[in-house]
Design a protein around this nucleic acid. Structure first.
Length: 333
DNA sequence: CGCCAGGCGAACA
DNA sequence: TGTTCGCATGGC
C-alpha cells in the first residue's frame, strides 16, 4: 500500500523539487534557491508552512507563476493513489515525500535536456548558466520579501512584510534566451560555452522552434506518442530527451524517461530473475506497469535510487526502509 | 592516467 | 531489429 496522504497532508519540499534533476535553472546560495521561471527571477526559501521569496516584477504575477511551476494547487495524493501497488515504488514515495513534477517552460526544458546527454547534472547547470549570462536578460530583484502559503483551497494570500527580511547579497539572475536569439548564435560561439558536440543540436532545435516547425502549443494538444514522434525529428533528441520534455515541459504525465538509472533499476529490481532483458521489453514494462502517471512514479524512483545508489548494487532488490530526511522540514499542503 | 556522466546517431552484424 | 562506438568536456 502507498502512504495515504489526505489532500491537506501531502507535503511539499522545495529542496526535493529543485534537487531532483528536473530543471537545471536553479542553484543554491547561502541557503536560498536562486533561478528563474521564464522572465521572472526568484530567490526562494522554504520555511514551515510557507515559501518566502524575492522576485522581479509584480507580486501577483510572481505568486501565480510559483503556484503553477511547483504544482501547488494539484492533488498530489490523488496521483500517488494511481500508482501500482509495488513495494519498491512505495519506498521511493516515502523517501521522496514532498516531491512534485515541475511545470517548466517547454523550450527551456528542451534546451536543458539537449545539453544533458552524457553529462553530469552539475555541469549541465554550469553550461546553462553561461548561456543565460551571455544571451539572456538580466532580471533585477525587488527588495521586498514576499510570502506564499502553499495550502490547498486557499486564495492567493501572498503578503509582504510578514517575515523578517534576511540581508543577503545575491548573484545576478538571467533569463534563458529565447529560441530566436539562440538560433542566430553561431555554432562556434555555443561551443565556447563548453557544450561540445551538443552545440549543433541546440542550435538546430532553436531554429526549429523559432521557425515554427516545432510548435509546443500544438504538441501539447497531441497524444503523448504523436508529440514524442515530432520531438524526435530533432537531431540530438532521442526517446529519453523527448520524454523529459513531454513530462517536465508539456504536462504529459505518462511519459517515463528511461535513462541509465532507470534502466539499471528495472534490470536489478523489477527483472532480477531474468539474466537478459532487451530495451523493448523494459520500455513496454515501464509504460504498462507504472500507468497513466508513470512520469511521476519515475521521478520518485529516479531521486530514490540516485540518493541511495547501493540499492542497485546487488543482483536482486533487497527490501529496505528509509526515514525521509526532509519530513521534518516538509510543509503540509 | 582511466573511467564515467539523466544519450544520440551512424555504422555495423 | 539489435548491439557497438565515437562524440566534447570535466570531475573524480
Amino acid at each position: 500500500m502507498h502512504p495515504v496522504f489526505s489532500k491537506q497532508e501531502v507535503p511539499f519540499s522545495l529542496d526535493l523539487c529543485l534537487h531532483s534533476g528536473q530543471s537545471f535553472a536553479w542553484r543554491q546560495h547561502a541557503g536560498f534557491w536562486i533561478g528563474n521561471i521564464r522572465q521572472t527571477g526568484f530567490v526562494l526559501q522554504q520555511t514551515p508552512g510557507v515559501i518566502r521569496y524575492l522576485c522581479t516584477g509584480k507580486e501577483e504575477f510572481a505568486a501565480s507563476a510559483l503556484r503553477r511551476y511547483f504544482a501547488l494547487d494539484e492533488d498530489q495524493a490523488a496521483i500517488i493513489r494511481q500508482f501500482p501497488k509495488d513495494p519498491f515504488l512505495h519506498d521511493a514515495v516515502r523517501f521522496c515525500a514532498g516531491l512534485r513534477i515541475l511545470h517548466q517552460d517547454p523550450w527551456e526544458c528542451l534546451a536543458g535536456f539537449i545539453l544533458s546527454s552524457a553529462k553530469q547534472i552539475v555541469h549541465i547547470q554550469q553550461i546553462r548558466r553561461v548561456i543565460a549570462e551571455r544571451w539572456g536578460r538580466r532580471l533585477r530583484l525587488e527588495t521586498t520579501w514576499r510570502c506564499l502559503s502553499a495550502s490547498f483551497d486557499k486564495p492567493l494570500t501572498a503578503s509582504a512584510n510578514l517575515v523578517e527580511t534576511p540581508i543577503v547579497a545575491f548573484p545576478p539572475i538571467y533569463s534563458f534566451p529565447s529560441p530566436s536569439i539562440l538560433a542566430r548564435v553561431k555554432e562556434s560561439e555555443l561551443r565556447a560555452c563548453r557544450m561540445g558536440f551538443r552545440a549543433p543540436y541546440l542550435r538546430m532545435a532553436a531554429r526549429a522552434v523559432a521557425d515554427g516547425r516545432l510548435d509546443f502549443n500544438l504538441l501539447a494538444g497531441l497524444s503523448t506518442a504523436e508529440a514524442r514522434e515530432r520531438l524526435m525529428f530533432l537531431k540530438g533528441v532521442g526517446q529519453k530527451i523527448a520524454d523529459c520534455v513531454l513530462l517536465f515541459g508539456l504536462g504529459k504525465a505518462e511519459a517515463f524517461p528511461l535513462d541509465t538509472w532507470m534502466l539499471k533499476m528495472l534490470r536489478r529490481i523489477y527483472f532480477a530473475r531474468k539474466r537478459r532483458t532487451n530495451l523493448r521489453e523494459l520500455r513496454d514494462f515501464a509504460s504498462n506497469h507504472f500507468g497513466a502517471y508513470g512520469g511521476h512514479a519515475q521521478q520518485y524512483l529516479f531521486h530514490y535510487v540516485r540518493m541511495n545508489p547501493w540499492l542497485l548494487d546487488g543482483r536482486s532488490g533487497t527490501r529496505k526502509k528509509f526515514d525521509n530526511p526532509i519530513d521534518k522540514q516538509g510543509m503540509a499542503c
